[in-house]
């Protein structure tokens, strides 16, 4: 049987991030700042997925994430699943969870929001976890998934 995780290439130790919507792949790479990482990284995209239509997978050799860092991708890849690999085996599976609050990750969509004029870490209440809608605690405006810009 063909293991989906192996479609790109197997890794010995590291993290596999699966179920990334294909069109969010490059955003995920940038949010996790993978371009600055010197570990071996492979990714596959436009893979077929029943759930997402087209999905992407990233395999990161020797790279492990803190929950706090992984939360950052929940905004654009809420269905993402993490497989932690040790010695070619999945030793732990994690789902990416959309937190109740998002601090300092996204930009407020409102051009006249104070956070876009002074150096303030943004703060949002997640008002819709499924479709992703964030309410800025400052200007009270909603930033929806379509307009999320990652800082």
């Amino acid at each position: 049987m063909k293991d989906k995780l192996l479609e790109v290439s197997a890794i010995k130790d590291g993290t596999v991030i699966d179920h990334i919507p294909a069109d969010s792949l490059f955003k995920v790479i940038s949010i996790l700042r993978l371009e600055k990482n010197d570990g071996m990284i492979t990714f596959g995209t436009n893979l077929e997925s029943k759930k997402l239509g087209k999905k992407a997978i990233i395999k990161l050799s020797g790279i492990f994430f803190k929950d706090k860092d992984i939360n950052r991708i929940a905004l654009i890849a809420p269905e993402a699943k993490l497989n932690i690999i040790r010695n070619y085996n999945v030793i732990e599976k994690k789902v990416v969870e959309v937190p109740d609050e998002i601090n300092g990750i996204a930009k407020c969509v409102n051009p006249v929001c104070i956070t876009n004029h002074e150096k303030i870490p943004t703060k949002f209440i997640v008002v819709d976890k499924r479709d992703i809608a964030l309410r800025c605690i400052y200007c009270e405006k909603i930033t929806d998934k379509e307009h999320i810009e990652i800082i």
């Binding site: 006249v112 929001c113 400052y138």
Partner: peptide, 10 residues
């Protein structure tokens, strides 16, 4: 009073 939204919360 301030023209920017969210300024009072800040």
């Amino acid at each position: 009073r301030h023209p920017l939204e969210g300024s009072a919360r800040y």
